[in-house]
């Protein structure tokens, strides 16, 4: 499995798409540091930024981690979908390993690499923000690291869902459609249910665990009960995605 992951790193290092993703991330976070204002992608729930609050710029920036959702689409596409679109998956399955090991290596490799990018980018941002804006806009490293760590289970869950989608759909276009459209679909369903009296409570729960809400609330609020429930949801999503992805890949024909 280590060999497979090393191979993946080698291949990703040759992929232009990955560098574009990394550049966009750096650009977004660089802008936030230079303009002294948090920012990024927030599709479904706007994050409110109160300049008078005690929360400093770097932690507020973490609440904009929705940006990684889109960066991870690029990563999973490069790591998994391309193998199906280029049909290179058969090379590995015929001469290197079996389907189960292949799936585990790809799934784990994608999650590990995604988290690596996530952590490195945040550390980089912290250092740049500290140097550029000083302590007035920068938290102590412990608080920053804790806020960053709170998002790790969510990031793992996102990478897991994407890995499942990539193995399930196989075709890059379908994967992209569902991955990009997923949050919009989720919010649309939740808001539709909200407008119906009988399903309002379900809708409230759905909106509570909507990605944008989780990303900001988990960092900006200190409700431990919500934190635990978020981690539970993320763990369940990760496990289910792993199982369904494995089932879908190992039980179906490989073209």
């Amino acid at each position: 499995m280590i060999n497979m992951m090393r191979a993946e790193l080698y291949r990703l290092s040759k992929s232009k798409g990955l560098y574009i993703c990394l550049f966009l991330l750096l650009f977004t976070y660089g802008m936030a540091a230079v303009l002294k204002a948090p920012g990024g992608i927030s599709l479904s729930a706007m994050v409110s930024f109160d300049k008078s609050s005690d929360v400093k710029l770097d932690i507020n920036q973490i609440s904009f981690n929705y940006t990684y959702y889109f960066a991870f689409i690029g990563l999973v596409f490069s790591a998994i979908s391309v193998e199906f679109s280029e049909k290179t998956v058969k090379n590995t399955l015929t001469s290197v390993t079996d389907k189960s090991r292949y799936f585990i290596a790809k799934f784990t490799g994608t999650v590990v690499f995604g988290l690596y990018v996530y952590i490195v980018m945040h550390l980089l941002y912290y250092i740049v923000n500290r140097i550029v804006n000083g302590t007035a806009y920068s938290s102590d490293f412990g608080s920053y690291a804790a806020a960053m760590a709170k998002h790790l289970p969510i990031m793992i869950a996102i990478l897991s869902i994407f890995s499942f989608l990539a193995f399930f759909f196989r075709k890059g276009a379908l994967f992209n459609t569902f991955a990009i459209g997923g949050p919009v679909l989720y919010t649309t369903v939740a808001l539709t249910l909200y407008s119906i009296n009988a399903t309002q409570k379900i809708a409230e729960k759905l909106l509570e665990y909507e990605l944008g809400s989780m990303l900001s609330k988990i960092v900006l609020d200190s409700d431990s009960k919500y934190l635990i429930s978020c981690f539970t949801v993320c763990s369940a999503v990760t496990l289910i995605s792993f199982f369904l992805g494995w089932l879908s890949f190992t039980r179906r024909e490989t073209d």
């Binding site: 191979a7 058969k90 090379n91 590995t92």
Partner: peptide
């Protein structure tokens, strides 16, 4: 086992050497 089943499939953005290097890592 060494295999070539149906059409040869490799990564278009990589050179011949890089493609084989990728599989060297895997193996």
């Amino acid at each position: 086992i060494g295999c070539l089943i149906e059409n040869p499939a490799f990564f278009g953005n990589m050179t011949a050497w890089q493609n084989l290097r990728y599989y060297c890592y895997q193996k």
